[in-house]
Design a protein around this nucleic acid. Sequence first.
DNA 1: CCGTATCCATTTGGATACTG
DNA 2: CAGTATCCAAATGGATACGG
Lengths: 108, 108
Amino acid sequence: MSNKKMEKSEEKCALQEILGVIGGKWSMSIIYALFPGKKRFSELERLVPNINTRMLVKELKNMETNGIVVRKVYATVPPTVEYTLTPKGQKLEPIISELYKWGLEYVG
Amino acid sequence: MSNKKMEKSEEKCALQEILGVIGGKWSMSIIYALFPGKKRFSELERLVPNINTRMLVKELKNMETNGIVVRKVYATVPPTVEYTLTPKGQKLEPIISELYKWGLEYVG
DNA sequence: CCGTATCCATTTGGATACTG
DNA sequence: CAGTATCCAAATGGATACGG
């Protein structure tokens, strides 16, 4: 949901583009939850505090579109869907971890 | 100032709190613009692409409240206001720089 | 289980005119 | 120059209903 209409405002600076990809209110928390490995939809719903179904779906789709996560569907009954980070998404680990540390020192 | 009262939403995870401080749509761009040193209000308005007055004021206030920036007013005519990063804000430099690099490699 | 869809309230963001 | 004030659009959240 980032690069929809850009004709108007010419160009966004790099940080703005990045935030369009991982700056969503829940993106980093979802990525953080995926660091240990693949997670099912319902697991993510549990792991990301206070998120609701609609927002989780929305952010996951956005992240899938932007190549941060991969969605894998298994034709089981009941259905199973697993989300994993792409290498591109995994490269965010040190950055988000540092941000997390910064927060522990200064925010919490 | 954390473990006081949070009955309603029980607890936000740390990342959510951090994003409340620097996750605003414009915060990182403003911080980035302030890395080289103090800037006046109008300079920031120029340096942060596409931001508008209201949002710049709002984000700066939020960041001042959260100890990221310092606002210094000079009683000149016309008025002069300078914004600088606090040490806490300066510690974000490596993190935002890494994020920027990540974006250059994967987004731009 | 994994979503989609809908209604509605609240929050946040944007454009721009105006002021000390 | 450095903001306020105002009005409006878009994003988000919560609850709930429903379907493959």
